[in-house]
Design a protein around this nucleic acid. Sequence first.
RNA 1: GCGCCCGUAGCUCAACAGGAUAGAGCAGUGGAUUUCUAAUCCACUGGUUGGGGGUUCGAGUCCCUCCGGGCGCGCCA
Length: 541
Amino acid sequence: MEQIPDNIKHYLENIVKDTLKSTFNVETEVIFEETPKPDFGDYSSNFLFRLKKELSEPIQTVGDIITLEVMKKLQHIASEVSTQTGFLNIKLANKTLHNILRKINSEPQEYGKVNIGNNEYINLEFVSANPTGPLNVVSARAASVGDSLKRIMNNAGYKVESEFYSNNAGKQVENLVKSVKWWINKLKGIEEPFPQEGYKGEYLKDIAERALNENIKEEELPEFITETILNEQLETLKQFNVEYDHVIKETFIRKSKYPGLVLRILKEEKFLFFEDGATFFRTTDFGDTESRVIIRRDGTGTYFFYDLAYHLYKLQRGYDKLINILGPDHHGYIKRMEAGLTALGYPNRLKIIIVQQVSLLKNGEKIKMSKRAGQFYTLKQLLEEVGKDAARFFFLMRTTDAHLDFDIDLAKKIGKENPVYYVQYMHARSHSLLKHGEENNIVPKDNNLRLLSLPEERLLMRKLMYFPDTVEKATIRMEPHEIPRYLLQLADIFHNYYQKNRIVNPDKPELSAARLFLVLAVKNVTKRALDIIGVEAPEQM
RNA sequence: GCGCCCGUAGCUCAACAGGAUAGAGCAGUGGAUUUCUAAUCCACUGGUUGGGGGUUCGAGUCCCUCCGGGCGCGCCA
């Protein structure tokens, strides 16, 4: 097989960049993108517009010279180079596309790997709920995004470890315990008023029953309750195809040396002051809008205080970067936490991603939810109702910072309206075609790929070529939604191709073998893409 | 009042660093099936990108302003 560059896009960029330097002595970044229309070629760049002011000659003159130079250097992989419109457009030779198919099928697992992580050691924290109840759908979205991001970044050469932080201490837990005690008493026949800030919800009754049956002592109750709920949360996440490298509990942090360490550093650096009997951390020195309490008047530490300790603990474990995926109610928290870590001597080490809220739609109406009132739709219910693949896919279809409407009825549908099936069906159909070929003694072969001469075939090959670019973009933007979008576009082209053309035709074995080679590449890339977002690639549907 | 997110087709959303004629899906209408799984495909209809101003070769994208929707603003977590 002829050598093709490891990454076509970057190869083109470097060629043009070097040409600009050697011919015009101009240093600039050149970026190639997928063309908006196939007519324009396969890759295009707008650098001529950008350089307009810097260049002494008219851009068309520059364009002509660049065209000639680039054409010379690319004659082994490109068929057309043009700057007619002001954009530099490059159309790749068909044999280049063929070589990409060969590359995909010879090492499917390697295709789409990018190298921008440089082995950077990352801690990725997501979901991190209080152990006060079942996980809700915002947690589900965070889980989907977080777990996919882990896979995406590991694919890109980062070393990512995922972490779940359980806030199993503090006032909310006290309220939780009070609520369970109320149930225990009720089961014993003792009627009391329900605790003021207690948690409603039937799941606490089950826990109360178990506590009674297992004779849990009063002082063991907090741990018993929080452990029970935490384990249920983790079990549900596991069913969602999400497993963690680390689970850290707030009780552990509270007992560790880190709270003391935080206090000492802040004190030494004179970032603390006292007011109304409480200890404040002057986060305003670091861009926060107001200073924050870390030790309350009653001497107890705030959530923020222990969270600082927790983050210090994470950093001292050796991570280069921390990424937190948080729900929409935490955006006010970003400044505070960044300020805190800067004060502790770790500036610019934390990246917070806010996942926006989710509205669930059923029968065209929004489901109302309130955790305190015990009315909510849980991740567990969602899994039972729509399945993990549909759930994961749906959560990833939008950018993380946009509100998401999750249509439960749509996710349950079987058919083209449901994007998950549309994409999975592409994989199943490829598999079935290959099997059908085998039954007719036709296997994928790469010795006659020039027979792939249809426009649809070129479109398909082109799209497969863009897969590494898509993965790279998803990594850089930290936006998993690029992957589902890519899959949907690929599925469109593939189903269209299938519909119009017979793939396996015993009368034309050569053509069939070439087409099956293309189908195999589609199958391999689909599998890779689905793996990256943690969705199953079924061979039969 | 302050802060964050959003406003694009009837609905749900794209548009990658500001680029080429603003694209998909759903819904609607009309068509394709002796199949390699129709869980599919094709065509048509649908837009003053919330309003106004600015920046420039070029603005859905950047800046200003107004309007509308959501969320947050605790010595809760």
